[in-house]
Simulated assay, not measured.
Amino acid sequence: MATIRHDQDIRYDRQVSRGLHAWVYFAMVGLAACYALSAWIGFGGGYDAYLLAVVTGFIVMAVALPAIAGRVWRHHRSGTHAATTFADWVEGDFDTGEHPMKARTAAIEILLPLAAVAFGMTAFAILALVES
Protein backbone atom coordinates (compact mmCIF):
# COMPACT_ATOMS: atom_id res chain seq x y z
CA MET A 1 0.00 0.00 0.00
CA ALA A 2 1.40 3.37 -0.98
CA THR A 3 1.64 6.12 1.58
CA ILE A 4 1.26 9.78 0.78
CA ARG A 5 3.32 12.35 2.64
CA HIS A 6 1.38 15.37 3.84
CA ASP A 7 4.14 16.97 5.90
CA GLN A 8 5.17 19.43 3.18
CA ASP A 9 3.03 22.08 1.59
CA ILE A 10 3.48 21.67 -2.16
CA ARG A 11 2.11 24.48 -4.27
CA TYR A 12 1.37 23.69 -7.89
CA ASP A 13 2.07 27.19 -9.20
CA ARG A 14 5.81 26.93 -8.47
CA GLN A 15 8.43 25.79 -10.92
CA VAL A 16 9.45 22.13 -10.56
CA SER A 17 13.03 21.37 -11.52
CA ARG A 18 14.45 17.95 -12.23
CA GLY A 19 18.08 18.94 -11.68
CA LEU A 20 20.12 20.69 -9.06
CA HIS A 21 21.24 24.27 -9.49
CA ALA A 22 24.90 24.83 -10.34
CA TRP A 23 25.57 26.47 -6.95
CA VAL A 24 24.62 23.24 -5.19
CA TYR A 25 27.24 21.42 -7.26
CA PHE A 26 29.79 24.14 -6.45
CA ALA A 27 29.03 23.68 -2.74
CA MET A 28 29.54 19.92 -3.11
CA VAL A 29 32.94 20.50 -4.77
CA GLY A 30 33.92 22.99 -2.06
CA LEU A 31 33.00 20.59 0.73
CA ALA A 32 34.95 17.76 -0.93
CA ALA A 33 37.97 20.06 -1.27
CA CYS A 34 37.63 21.07 2.40
CA TYR A 35 37.58 17.39 3.37
CA ALA A 36 40.69 16.53 1.34
CA LEU A 37 42.59 19.61 2.44
CA SER A 38 41.78 18.99 6.10
CA ALA A 39 42.96 15.40 5.81
CA TRP A 40 46.26 16.50 4.28
CA ILE A 41 46.83 19.30 6.79
CA GLY A 42 45.96 17.22 9.82
CA PHE A 43 47.44 13.87 8.90
CA GLY A 44 49.81 14.44 5.95
CA GLY A 45 53.18 13.54 7.24
CA GLY A 46 55.45 10.56 7.48
CA TYR A 47 54.72 7.23 5.87
CA ASP A 48 50.96 7.70 5.64
CA ALA A 49 51.10 10.19 2.77
CA TYR A 50 50.51 7.50 0.13
CA LEU A 51 47.23 6.55 1.83
CA LEU A 52 46.13 10.18 1.76
CA ALA A 53 47.04 10.33 -1.93
CA VAL A 54 44.81 7.31 -2.61
CA VAL A 55 41.93 8.81 -0.62
CA THR A 56 42.38 12.14 -2.39
CA GLY A 57 42.22 10.28 -5.72
CA PHE A 58 38.92 8.69 -4.68
CA ILE A 59 37.55 12.10 -3.67
CA VAL A 60 38.64 13.64 -6.98
CA MET A 61 36.99 10.82 -8.93
CA ALA A 62 33.81 11.05 -6.83
CA VAL A 63 33.58 14.74 -7.72
CA ALA A 64 34.85 14.57 -11.31
CA LEU A 65 32.62 11.79 -12.65
CA PRO A 66 29.28 13.41 -11.73
CA ALA A 67 30.61 16.77 -12.95
CA ILE A 68 31.53 15.32 -16.33
CA ALA A 69 28.21 13.46 -16.57
CA GLY A 70 26.30 16.64 -15.72
CA ARG A 71 28.21 18.64 -18.29
CA VAL A 72 27.49 16.06 -21.00
CA TRP A 73 23.81 15.95 -19.98
CA ARG A 74 23.51 19.76 -20.12
CA HIS A 75 25.23 19.83 -23.52
CA HIS A 76 23.01 17.16 -25.09
CA ARG A 77 19.61 17.83 -23.55
CA SER A 78 16.82 18.67 -25.93
CA GLY A 79 15.10 22.03 -26.02
CA THR A 80 16.21 25.33 -24.65
CA HIS A 81 15.85 25.95 -20.97
CA ALA A 82 16.20 29.39 -19.50
CA ALA A 83 18.77 29.58 -16.77
CA THR A 84 17.18 30.36 -13.44
CA THR A 85 18.79 32.20 -10.59
CA PHE A 86 19.58 30.37 -7.38
CA ALA A 87 16.92 32.36 -5.52
CA ASP A 88 14.26 31.29 -8.03
CA TRP A 89 15.43 27.68 -7.91
CA VAL A 90 15.34 27.58 -4.10
CA GLU A 91 11.80 28.95 -4.03
CA GLY A 92 10.60 26.26 -6.43
CA ASP A 93 10.12 22.54 -6.06
CA PHE A 94 12.55 19.70 -6.79
CA ASP A 95 11.32 16.49 -8.41
CA THR A 96 12.75 13.51 -6.56
CA GLY A 97 11.05 10.87 -8.69
CA GLU A 98 8.54 9.92 -6.01
CA HIS A 99 7.05 13.32 -5.29
CA PRO A 100 8.13 16.92 -5.55
CA MET A 101 9.63 18.52 -2.48
CA LYS A 102 10.80 22.01 -1.71
CA ALA A 103 14.11 22.73 -3.44
CA ARG A 104 15.49 24.33 -0.29
CA THR A 105 14.84 21.13 1.66
CA ALA A 106 16.38 19.01 -1.10
CA ALA A 107 19.55 21.12 -1.16
CA ILE A 108 19.89 20.91 2.62
CA GLU A 109 19.37 17.13 2.61
CA ILE A 110 22.00 16.72 -0.10
CA LEU A 111 24.63 19.03 1.42
CA LEU A 112 24.19 18.18 5.11
CA PRO A 113 26.03 14.80 5.11
CA LEU A 114 28.87 16.26 3.04
CA ALA A 115 29.16 19.24 5.37
CA ALA A 116 29.17 17.00 8.45
CA VAL A 117 32.03 14.90 7.06
CA ALA A 118 34.04 17.92 5.87
CA PHE A 119 33.66 19.87 9.10
CA GLY A 120 34.28 16.75 11.18
CA MET A 121 37.54 16.13 9.34
CA THR A 122 38.46 19.78 9.89
CA ALA A 123 37.87 19.32 13.63
CA PHE A 124 40.03 16.16 13.64
CA ALA A 125 42.77 18.03 11.74
CA ILE A 126 42.72 20.86 14.27
CA LEU A 127 42.96 18.37 17.13
CA ALA A 128 45.83 16.57 15.40
CA LEU A 129 47.69 19.85 14.96
CA VAL A 130 47.14 20.82 18.59
CA GLU A 131 48.38 17.42 19.83
CA SER A 132 51.59 17.52 17.79
Rank of each mutant, 00 (worst) to 15 (best):
A39S: 11
W40L: 04
W40C: 04
W40D: 02
I41W: 04
I41A: 07
G42V: 01
G42W: 02
F43E: 05
G45W: 11
G45N: 11
G46H: 05
G46Y: 09
G46M: 07
Y47P: 07
Y47W: 15
D48G: 14
Y50Q: 13
L51C: 10
A53P: 02
A53T: 12
V54Y: 08
V54E: 09
V55D: 06
V55K: 03
G57Q: 03
G57M: 05
F58L: 14
I59W: 00
V60W: 05
V60F: 10
A62C: 13
V63G: 00
A64R: 06
L65T: 14
P66F: 10
I68A: 11
I68S: 04
I68E: 07
A69M: 10
A69P: 01
G70M: 02
G70D: 11
G70A: 09
R71V: 15
V72Y: 12
V72N: 06
V72H: 07
W73P: 00
W73N: 11
R74Y: 12
R74Q: 14
H75N: 12
R77Y: 07
R77V: 14
S78M: 13
S78K: 09
G79T: 08
G79E: 07
G79D: 09
G79L: 04
G79Y: 04
T80Q: 13
T80D: 15
H81Y: 10
H81L: 12
A83H: 11
T85H: 04
T85I: 13
F86C: 06
F86W: 10
F86M: 09
D88Q: 13
D88I: 05
W89V: 03
W89P: 00
V90H: 05
V90Y: 03
E91Y: 08
E91S: 12
G92D: 04
G92I: 03
D93T: 12
F94P: 00
F94D: 02
D95K: 05
T96V: 11
T96G: 02
T96Y: 05
G97W: 04
G97M: 06
E98M: 12
H99R: 15
H99L: 14
H99T: 15
H99P: 01
P100N: 05
P100A: 09
M101Q: 09
M101F: 06
M101Y: 04
K102C: 06
A103S: 09
A103Y: 02
R104S: 08
R104M: 08
R104Q: 08
T105A: 13
A107L: 03
